[in-house]
Simulated scan of single mutants.
Amino acid sequence: MHIIPVIDLLDGQVVRAVRGERRHYRAIASALCGSADPRIVARRLCEHCATDTLYLADLNALQGRPPQLEWLRTLLQDQPDVALWLDAGFSGPDAAAHLLARLAPTAAARVTPVYGSESLRSREALAACFAPPSRALLSLDHRQGAPLDPAGVWELPAQWPRRLIVMTLSSVGSDGGPDLDTLAAVRARAPDAQLIG
């Protein structure tokens, strides 16, 4: 099993996600980390999970604000052996390329863009995001049974990449475990996909 820890980063602090209600997120309090400092949290989570991959949700960018580029650079420098899956509210491949171009080439090579259905703005963008040789991931986002999907991504399984994240925002931070019903529904529509939930 490959465990990929997740950090939600808001205004330079790691916050505790609660059911996708971002306005209520507060700095994390954890016995494992003892801090909301992203460097400490990232280091401890990666050590604890014995992983070489970290998922970072830039909540500033996801809410339409500038990405936390300095923190992204800091985390990549502080964790030189860790690959980063980055969800920064990318509307399409040009937005991801623009952000990655602002990193050092060696650092940018360790970042995998995550395109969330809540952020993609067109079906054309969906196709462009996963045109070869893309290594990006698609996050199928929904809350309380309703897709977060302005572009209609959920209705286009033929255009989904092989690796899919199934993100049930209303379950995040609820201590309710994975959303097995939605994972099963996505599996039925994409039987060959690698599901991450």
Rank of each mutant, 00 (worst) to 15 (best):
residue 129 C to E: 13
residue 129 C to L: 07
residue 129 C to V: 13
residue 129 C to M: 12
residue 130 F to S: 05
residue 130 F to L: 02
residue 130 F to H: 09
residue 131 A to T: 15
residue 131 A to N: 08
residue 132 P to M: 07
residue 133 P to A: 12
residue 133 P to I: 05
residue 133 P to G: 13
residue 133 P to H: 11
residue 134 S to W: 05
residue 135 R to I: 12
residue 135 R to H: 15
residue 135 R to C: 13
residue 138 L to M: 06
residue 139 S to V: 07
residue 139 S to M: 04
residue 140 L to E: 02
residue 140 L to N: 01
residue 141 D to K: 00
residue 142 H to N: 11
residue 142 H to R: 14
residue 142 H to D: 10
residue 143 R to D: 13
residue 143 R to M: 11
residue 143 R to Q: 15
residue 144 Q to S: 15
residue 144 Q to W: 01
residue 144 Q to T: 13
residue 145 G to I: 09
residue 145 G to R: 08
residue 145 G to K: 01
residue 146 A to I: 14
residue 146 A to T: 15
residue 147 P to S: 09
residue 148 L to F: 04
residue 148 L to A: 12
residue 149 D to R: 12
residue 149 D to K: 06
residue 150 P to H: 10
residue 150 P to K: 03
residue 150 P to F: 08
residue 151 A to T: 09
residue 151 A to E: 06
residue 151 A to N: 06
residue 152 G to Q: 09
residue 152 G to E: 10
residue 152 G to D: 08
residue 153 V to I: 15
residue 153 V to A: 01
residue 154 W to T: 01
residue 155 E to S: 14
residue 156 L to E: 10
residue 156 L to D: 02
residue 156 L to I: 00
residue 156 L to T: 02
residue 156 L to R: 15
residue 157 P to R: 08
residue 158 A to Y: 02
residue 158 A to D: 15
residue 160 W to E: 10
residue 160 W to G: 09
residue 161 P to W: 10
residue 161 P to I: 06
residue 161 P to A: 12
residue 161 P to E: 11
residue 161 P to N: 10
residue 162 R to I: 01
residue 162 R to N: 09
residue 163 R to C: 12
residue 163 R to M: 03
residue 163 R to K: 10
residue 163 R to W: 05
residue 164 L to R: 03
residue 164 L to Q: 00
residue 164 L to C: 07
residue 164 L to D: 01
residue 165 I to E: 05
residue 166 V to K: 00
residue 166 V to W: 00
residue 167 M to A: 14
residue 167 M to S: 11
residue 168 T to D: 14
residue 169 L to R: 09
residue 169 L to D: 07
residue 169 L to G: 03
residue 170 S to H: 13
residue 170 S to A: 13
residue 170 S to C: 08
residue 170 S to V: 05
residue 170 S to K: 04
residue 171 S to N: 14
residue 171 S to M: 13
residue 172 V to H: 00
residue 172 V to E: 11
residue 173 G to N: 01
residue 173 G to Y: 07
residue 174 S to R: 01
residue 174 S to H: 07
residue 175 D to T: 01
residue 175 D to P: 00
residue 175 D to G: 14
residue 175 D to Y: 10
residue 176 G to Y: 05
residue 176 G to D: 10
residue 176 G to R: 08
residue 176 G to W: 00
residue 177 G to I: 07
residue 177 G to F: 05
residue 178 P to D: 09
residue 178 P to I: 14
residue 178 P to Q: 08
residue 179 D to H: 01
residue 179 D to T: 00
residue 180 L to K: 05
residue 181 D to I: 10
residue 181 D to F: 01
residue 182 T to N: 04
residue 182 T to G: 00
residue 183 L to K: 09
residue 183 L to R: 10
residue 184 A to I: 06
residue 184 A to E: 08
residue 185 A to H: 11
residue 185 A to D: 14
residue 186 V to R: 03
residue 187 R to F: 09
residue 188 A to M: 07
residue 189 R to Q: 15
residue 189 R to P: 05
residue 190 A to R: 10
residue 190 A to H: 06
residue 190 A to K: 03
residue 191 P to Q: 09
residue 191 P to R: 04
residue 191 P to M: 00
